[in-house]
């Protein structure tokens, strides 16, 4: 039994090598790491650009993060993008006078409030110490480390959802095309072993990818601290996506139809999740979206926050078991097909 499993693993490994899967993963690793280290980690962009028109100089000297403009027209022009916030200080002092907030609404009321609060917080920086004094500070992230954690979580999620999914499906489509799946029906080897060998290979490759990506982009000490949580979430996501890819490849007749499903999954399933978590776009139904929870758990793992509970892990285990059973059924169906 162990010999059969090793033979299946070796064969799948060679299929992955000949299909360029590992090369693609290595290319992605280099590309993502270059982007994170050379571009994203160095971004020093403010949350929202804030402009100030203060003719009476009531707000005092220059404030970090606030750009002064010379006229009301200039202020209006600067704030016309639905992203920036304008402060028109009209009076003798910031506290006693009237400060008008000017902005084009982004269309999401809650986000408009956040923009306003952020702009005001810059204006009254002396209050910041008091506000922070009310919270218990449990850890400190530099902006660079925050950027690194954020983007590494995103690219790992994307890699596992899109590339890993594609990897297992392309491997299975190749075997379908060669007709060799049918040969396994008359070999003394179980279907479970056939599926497990592919899962083992994909899972190992994804975990290795996740570990290297995390250590390279977060650095050794921080990366190692985050790694246990990240590997757990990467393992769950990798198994789920590999099984979904497996099932799609079994049920769909050719790669063209699979490409369409791939597009649906990559664009229509993951995009709303990114929009909701990263851009704060409000979507009521998002809490019913399984990918939202998987992405949130992944992101939390990078920030070393243990937020997922028993329900989350129970649902993941149930999903993996159900998908595994469905993959077994699909494999049996494929084996019975005519030449």
């Amino acid at each position: 039994m162990r010999g059969s499993f090793v033979a299946l693993l070796k064969k799948d490994f060679r299929l992955c090598v000949s299909g360029g899967f590992f090369l693609l993963a290595l290319g992605s690793l280099i590309l993502y790491s270059c982007y994170i280290n050379l571009v994203y980690a160095k971004l020093d962009q403010e949350l929202f650009p804030v402009y100030r028109y203060d003719p009476g100089k009531a707000g005092g000297e220059r404030i970090a993060g606030v750009t002064d403009v010379g006229s009301l027209n200039e202020l209006e022009e600067a704030c016309a993008d639905g992203y920036s916030v304008g402060l028109h200080i009209n009076g003798d002092s910031v506290f006693g006078g009237k400060t008008e907030i000017m902005m084009v609404s982004c269309g999401i009321e809650r986000l408009d409030h956040i923009r306003e609060a952020y702009a005001r917080s810059l204006l009254f920086q002396e209050d910041k110490t008091d506000a922070l004094g009310q919270a218990e500070i449990i850890g400190v992230n530099t902006r660079e480390m925050k950027n690194r954690r954020e983007m590494t979580a995103e690219v790992l999620f994307f890699e596992l959802v899109a590339v890993g999914f594609l990897g297992v499906a392309s491997m299975l489509f190749k075997e379908k095309q060669m007709g060799v799946i049918r040969v396994h029906a008359i070999l003394p080897v179980s279907r479970i072993q056939f599926i497990l060998s592919k899962l083992t290979l994909l899972l190992s490759s994804d975990l290795l990818f996740a570990a290297v990506l995390t250590v390279v982009n977060l650095g050794m000490p921080e990366g190692l601290k985050a790694l246990p949580g990240v590997l757990l979430q990467a393992g769950i996501l990798s198994l789920v996506m590999a099984l979904v890819g497996f099932l799609c490849a079994e049920l769909l007749p050719d790669f063209k139809q699979f490409s369409l499903i791939y597009l649906v999954i990559a664009v229509f399933i993951t995009t709303p999740v990114f929009l909701s978590v990263q851009a704060g776009v409000e979507m009521e139904w998002m809490r019913f979206h399984p990918m939202y929870h998987l992405f949130t758990a992944m992101k939390n793992a990078y920030f070393q926050v243990l937020s997922a509970g028993g329900l989350y892990y129970g649902a993941c285990a149930a999903a993996i078991i159900l998908l595994f059973l469905a993959a077994g059924w699909g494999l049996g169906r494929e084996m019975k097909k005519e030449g």
Partner: peptide
């Protein structure tokens, strides 16, 4: 079993194909 069509791993050689199937 000899199938109607020669279902083989096309990326592997004859020897590697046979050694793979033999391992079961």
């Amino acid at each position: 079993v000899l199938f109607e069509f020669p279902y083989l791993y096309t990326n592997l050689s004859a020897v590697d194909n046979l050694r793979y199937f033999a391992s079961f």
